[in-house]
Amino acid sequence: MTFKTLDDLTDLSGKTALVRVDFNVPMDNGVITDDTRLKVALPTIEKLVAKGAKVALLAHFDRPKGKVVPEMSLKPVVEPLSKLLGKPVTFASDCIGDDAKSVVAALPAGGVALLENVRFHAGEEKNDADFAKALAEVGDIYVNDAFSAAHRAHASTEGLAHLLPAYAGESMKRELNALDAALGNPQRPTLGIVGGSKVSTKLDLLKNLVGKLDALAIGGGMANTFLFAQGHDVGGSLCEKDLKDTALEIIAEAEAKGCRLLLPVDLVVAQEFKANAANRTQDLGAPLSAEDKIFDAGPETVEQLKEVMANSKTLIWNGPLGVFELPPFDAATVAAAKFAASQTKSGKLVAVAGGGDTVAALNHAGVVADMTFVSTAGGAFLEWMEGKELPGVAALES
């Protein structure tokens, strides 16, 4: 896809950039506990400021459902954002109307204002045309820097892009370029790793990927469903036995489309789910009791995956290979992640990962900084991997 970026803009003196950011940050009693999303927005804000624009930030927080909920105000974001930017940030008590316009009008060139929660208006989530027009009246150009909200067709993520000249912000540009490198126009051979607990939550994803990748490794509780479908005993493990036929269809589709499916060849088994529980590693096909549960892939499975990874040029990763939250059931995920990081650092692999559990697992392995790109956008990343059109991205296409 082609989209305009901030590099297409020159002098913006006298112009106001309406910038959609994701400031839906974790908060405890009005105090931000993780400012990652604020930091992600800084390059876009700073680039617009350097071009002389007034910057008016649009964001949502929590789910006020179209009503003003004081505890869901964005006001607590102002001070921490100001500190990160090293300059004052003005707050407007509304995102439309006279208050928003007067606050923005009073800004000097290069000034920054944060407008109140767009979801305080019912028109936001309905993508209401009149609400989108009211937002557009506050600015001259529109910049979308919130990929994590791009799967929503809301007024501030989609409607606005049709009313003002629209551009992708720095974070959005980075995300779209990384995703294109992973699935759009990847270097081949391509490998996918999909893990997690349930096949049912990732059916669309699996069906899309087997048609696009050269190899796909399935791990976590999902793998149990595939192993069961193939006739293997999974003991008392998490397994969606009612999806046996679906798993067999995906296996057949992968074969028909030339995608090599990698399933565990050995298993880490325990009878209780707790840290450092008594466990054993056994080959696939060895007997399991009703009390035995599979909590991780074994070392042979990891070696097989590393071998395929060593011969791949692109990796896309969503979901852990085992119950990584508790040792020793993090071993497969950590070993695979460290190998992926080493391949990426040495320039042999483009590795793109995303989704909530994936980010947590890669952080646990200490490799986030070494991957090509790690997306923190959960739902949007997953829908993009499923091959679905993201309204907020489609609206930026030029």
Score class of each variant (00 low, 15 high):
216 L>W: 10
80 P>F: 13
89 V>L: 06
57 L>S: 10
123 G>I: 08
42 L>D: 09
139 G>W: 14
383 E>H: 13
185 N>K: 15
283 D>C: 01
150 A>V: 06
267 L>A: 04
55 V>R: 02
138 V>G: 07
42 L>H: 08
396 L>E: 15
288 L>Y: 12
28 D>W: 00
182 A>L: 08
144 N>H: 06
398 S>R: 11
38 L>M: 14
165 P>V: 07
362 L>G: 00
27 M>Q: 15
73 S>K: 11
333 T>F: 08
247 A>R: 02
303 E>S: 14
149 A>S: 14
327 P>G: 08
37 R>D: 08
270 A>D: 11
46 E>H: 13
334 V>A: 06
153 A>D: 02
139 G>R: 06
368 V>P: 06
168 A>S: 05
31 V>P: 04
328 P>T: 14
344 T>Q: 09
253 E>M: 15
29 N>S: 14
9 L>V: 06
285 G>F: 08
252 A>D: 09
20 R>H: 09
316 I>M: 09
259 C>Y: 04
281 T>I: 15
1 M>T: 11
337 A>M: 12
128 D>S: 03
202 K>F: 12
247 A>D: 01
73 S>G: 12
379 G>E: 03
139 G>K: 06
83 K>T: 12
21 V>F: 03
107 L>K: 07
210 V>D: 05
265 V>T: 15
164 L>F: 13
10 T>V: 02
60 H>A: 08
132 A>L: 11
351 A>L: 00
185 N>T: 15
11 D>C: 04
74 L>P: 02
252 A>I: 03
296 D>A: 07
125 E>N: 05
176 L>E: 10
92 A>I: 06
226 F>I: 00
17 A>W: 12
98 D>I: 08
11 D>V: 01
